[in-house]
Write a protein that binds this DNA or RNA. Structure first.
Lengths: 123, 123
DNA sequence: TATCGTTATATATTTAAATATATAACGATA
DNA sequence: TATCGTTATATATTTAAATATATAACGATA
């Protein structure tokens, strides 16, 4: 009695199906989990700098990410202001909010897919 | 008349949904596209060394990958032989063949999911 | 027992990506 | 006009991952 691959994957290894998802444009990645979280935190904290700190991401990386997004989108996702009452800050646009919402729904459907595939492995 | 996020993503950027998929066990990645391709090429070429060359992967990386897989699985995926008539070689087990088949089906379903989500973006 | 090309292994080097550091520019406010 | 903390930018350093290189062990065969 030989073991099926399912037996090995599930019974012996307790394996599960996992993955990651992003929006792609032209050649490469465009909008994935990282940018989503960064935008959310910019909205919360009011600045790229603080958002980056919270994520333990270097400010440089965060700024380049936002800069790239703003350049690629037809409409910017973040409006930065250098200088001002408290030194400045950044706000996210309504388009960014829509993007986040869309991505949440998309990820939910993806999570369902992954769960379904993991369950399928078990029966 | 403001643009919806869908308009921006599809009309302006021609964005599509993409992602990657793997089997996970315990803490981390376990079996993704890379290992699948490597196993396929070991089956074709009869050696880890040649398979790695074809993929332009360093032998070391290929060997470590196979070694890790063999250690993690209840049954090895590759049977290596050092020494022998032509210096040696490696063959893949029936479990490896099953794994590859399973992964192909899984990726097909994932591709369908991605296509569906990309189309959903368009309407 | 010499030969073959492979597996198995250690170590050095290269590469790419990230963080770290420093600093100018900014603009509302007191 | 001095101050604030931020954005914006360049450069140095660190880190992690990969390749490159070298070599011993292997075992069937002639």
């Amino acid at each position: 009695m030989t073991k099926s691959i399912k037996d090995i994957l599930i019974k012996d290894l307790n394996a599960r199906v996992n993955g990651s998802l992003w929006l792609e444009v032209g050649d490469g990645h465009f909008f994935g989990p990282g940018p989503v979280e960064l935008l959310e935190r910019i909205a919360e904290t009011g600045s790229i700098s603080n958002a980056a700190k919270e994520m333990k991401m270097s400010y440089k990386k965060a700024w380049e990410l936002i800069n790239r997004l703003n350049a690629q989108m037809a409409t910017p996702v973040v409006i930065p202001q250098a200088g001002g009452e408290k030194g400045g800050g950044s706000i996210i646009t309504s388009e960014a909010i829509e993007l986040i919402k869309y991505h949440r729904l998309l990820r939910k459907r993806f999570a369902d897919f992954l769960e379904k595939e993991t369950k399928r492995l078990k029966f």
